[in-house]
């Protein structure tokens, strides 16, 4: 029996929620970063499942754009994180809070 498209959407939504939750709760910067990527991939899944449901190739093409952007983000994000890491041994998001008030 074929799995209705909406299930995929639900899975994607769950994945997205998971990613968001990950960014919110995990203190380690690297894990936050990974959850961010997870959210982007969840969106890819949504695109693909919609493309399949709508039977339109546009959605799938968009996935490639998302991938490209995600890659660019990774490069820059890791660059920043490494720069921070070089000053301090362990890096948690809460340490980085001298800019406040």
């Amino acid at each position: 029996m074929t799995i209705p498209g909406s299930w995929y959407l639900v899975v994607a939504a769950l994945l997205f929620g998971l990613g968001a939750f990950g960014v919110l709760t995990r203190r380690n910067v690297i894990v936050m970063f990974m959850s961010l990527e997870l959210m982007l991939n969840a969106v890819n899944l949504t695109f693909v499942s919609y493309a399949r449901m709508l039977n339109d190739v546009g959605g799938q093409v968009d996935v490639f754009f998302v991938l490209v952007v995600a890659a660019a983000e990774v490069v820059v994000g890791l660059g920043i994180i490494v720069a921070i890491f070089r000053q301090r041994a362990t890096v948690t998001a809460d340490d980085i809070s001298s800019l406040k008030g």
Partner: peptide, 8 residues
Amino acid sequence: KVQSGLVR
């Protein structure tokens, strides 16, 4: 106070 500096 809201501007706590914590990203999360």
